[in-house]
Design a protein around this nucleic acid. Structure first.
Lengths: 141, 141
DNA sequence: CTTAATGCAAAATCTTTGCATGAAC
DNA sequence: GTTCATGCAAAGATTTTGCATTAAG
């Protein structure tokens, strides 16, 4: 019973702005905030409105084409999604670089907790953050 | 190597407002937002400023006397802390009622992920949300 | 042409902060 | 009396939305 709620994917028109957001998102090695993404597109010379960045990211996330985690301050961080399996991430707090974590143990645990508690429609969020080896070595970026 | 960073607990004066926030927090069966807590204190006839609610909650959380999770919209939800063990919660999305989850499996998994990845200073957040049996039965509150 | 996307600025949230007043110790 | 807490309103930060304009199909 996979939670693969691949949304009906609302009308999607190819526009330069959307391409740009996708490109910028794909170019990031890790999770990135909408704001930073917007800054990047600006820096790259494209004129993409901040609201569009938000709208595109929301669409992507809704369609399952982007993963979302929450930063320490509650801001949403997005990452282009490579595959379709449900995953958890170990995200570098400094650079956003993320490793996927093998999470069968978690999934099992969650399923068990759901059953035992009697709770219905149980969602889960597992977020790991740390400092990656590269950032630990030398404060870059 | 427990993450029991029990803060030095900055100067703490007993005031009616603090007592009221504590009381309101303790009265809740589950996790509650600062805003709702403020509304409750108002409803109970006490005059506690919203900023005080935020400040007191921040102090409590910092001192390890309250647990914090994040709601779906990124808002912080607080709960009075009964014991000192590191726990995870299964929170009802409707009423905030929470069950603690036995989380040894998670802790082990996190520790392993940290070691294997080479990441340092790894924090983790595990949040489960669902609908508790009571709320599933009848939409109350 | 018809419908959807864009951009801007305004609004909505949640949260924090500056500062003068008042209460705790 | 000092020092900290309070309250208000203003500021911050992130995200959403209304609406006229522009572009995609």
């Amino acid at each position: 019973m996979p939670r693969t709620r691949r949304a009906p994917l609302p009308p999607w028109r190819e526009t330069p702005q959307r391409a740009e957001v996708l490109r910028a998102l794909a170019a990031r090695p890790g999770f990135t905030s909408a704001q930073l993404l917007h800054a990047r597109t600006q820096a790259d010379g494209s004129e993409v409105g901040l609201s569009i960045v938000y709208r595109v990211l929301a669409l992507l996330a809704g369609a399952g084409q982007a993963d979302v985690v929450r930063g320490a301050n509650g801001e949403r961080l997005y990452r282009h999604r490579d595959d379709t399996t449900h995953q958890h991430f170990l995200v570098c707090r400094r650079c956003g670089f993320a490793l996927t974590s093998d999470s069968d143990a978690i999934e099992d645990w969650v399923a068990r907790a759901a059953v035992e508690s009697g709770f219905s429609d149980v969602h889960h969020t597992v977020e790991l953050s740390g400092v990656c080896t590269r950032c630990a070595a030398g404060p870059s970026e």
